[in-house]
Amino acid sequence: MQQVKVQGVILDWAGTVVDYGCFAPVAAFKEVFASRELEVTNEEVRKPMGMLKKDHLRTMLQMPRIEQMWVDKYDRKPEETDVDELYEVFEPSLFAILHNYVAPIPGSLEMIARLRDQGIKIGSSTGYTREMMDVVEPKARELGYAPDYVVTPNEVPGGRPYPWMIYRNTMELGVYPLAAVVKCGDTIVDIGEGVNAGVWTVGVLKGSNELGLTEEEVTALEATEEGRTQLQQQLEAIRTSFLREGADYVIESIGELDQVVTAINERLARGEQPILQKQGEV
């Protein structure tokens, strides 16, 4: 029987490979709620990040504080028609700024080149729709990032944490078995997607939506002892969340992912497999 080795790595986009800190969607979501004279926090915006954007809006409207603000203003709970109307505002707001948030995160392109040198295919999944990716993909290609396959949540039966985008990647890239696949992302639903698909799952900390800091803010924190302590506390809290969700590994920076692939290949050589820890819990 042939030894199984990692054949494919499936990467999230914003907050993982491009858009350090995942800021494009945050600005657009806040603008949408401001259009209804409702002020939402960065934390509320970031919590469902990685979902299909319409699902993201729906989830935010179900948050107790936001729902209560809506009731106080409109004398009723938000309905599905409100989701549709908010999304009509959200989409042009995001499209207007999306092209400005495509810069590759430091270390990502070099890491991807090292994976390709091993013959590993690069797939991707996202919370962006196909129309959004039609803006992001060409710009990212100009800046040096072009994965072998891109699928969006509106091209499959459902977005994260459902596993369908990962399965589409494996089919189109021709990678099998699932133990030969690694998923890496920067949000809680990224981890859920990987776990539900039954592939090796990796969370990334710096540059992530969960951390929500710019590269400059991270650098400033690292410049002082107090700042380093504060940053490490934040990173450890996110690491704990990823591991609790079922991540097999958590890395500090995306440039470390190929080291994880090496470790996974060693585990595969010993006959180990990723565990489908939360099958069906989507």
Rank of each mutant, 00 (worst) to 15 (best):
Q3F: 06
Q3V: 10
V6F: 11
Q7H: 10
V9H: 05
L11W: 13
A14F: 11
V18M: 14
V26N: 06
F29Q: 02
E31Q: 13
V32Y: 07
L38I: 15
E39D: 13
E39N: 08
V45G: 03
V45K: 00
R46P: 05
R46H: 03
R46F: 07
K47N: 12
K47H: 12
K47S: 11
P48T: 09
M49S: 10
H56K: 07
L61G: 02
M63F: 12
P64D: 13
P64H: 10
R65Y: 09
E67Q: 15
E67I: 04
W70S: 02
W70N: 02
K73Q: 12
K77H: 04
E79P: 01
E80P: 02
E80D: 14
E80N: 09
D82Y: 07
D84G: 01
D84V: 08
E88F: 00
V89S: 01
F90L: 13
E91W: 09
E91K: 15
L94S: 03
L94N: 03
F95H: 13
F95V: 00
A96N: 11
I97C: 01
I97G: 00
Y101D: 01
P104I: 02
L109G: 07
E110M: 06
A113G: 08
R114H: 13
I120T: 06
I122R: 05
G123F: 09
R130G: 08
E131V: 14
M133F: 11
M133K: 08
V135K: 15
V136P: 07
E137L: 12
G144W: 14
A146V: 00
D148H: 14
N154S: 09
E155W: 14
R160K: 15
R168D: 15
N169K: 09
T170G: 01
L173D: 04
Y176E: 10
P177Q: 11
P177T: 12
A179K: 06
V181C: 11
V182K: 06
V182P: 00
T187Q: 05
G192M: 10
V195G: 04
G198W: 04
V199N: 04
V202F: 08
K206A: 08
G207E: 01
L211E: 08
G212C: 10
T214G: 14
T214M: 04
E216Y: 10
E216W: 10
E217D: 12
E217K: 08
E217I: 02
V218L: 06
T219E: 15
E222W: 08
T224G: 08
E225P: 00
E226D: 13
Q230P: 00
L231G: 01
L235M: 07
L235R: 01
E236I: 00
A237G: 03
A237Q: 07
I238V: 10
T240Q: 13
T240S: 09
G246D: 03
G246K: 06
G246Y: 04
D248A: 06
E252V: 00
E252G: 01
I254Q: 02
I254K: 00
D258F: 13
D258G: 05
V260G: 03
N265S: 05
A269Q: 12
R270M: 06
R270D: 11
G271I: 13
E272P: 04
E272D: 15
P274N: 02
P274I: 03
P274C: 03
L276K: 02
K278R: 15
E281Y: 10
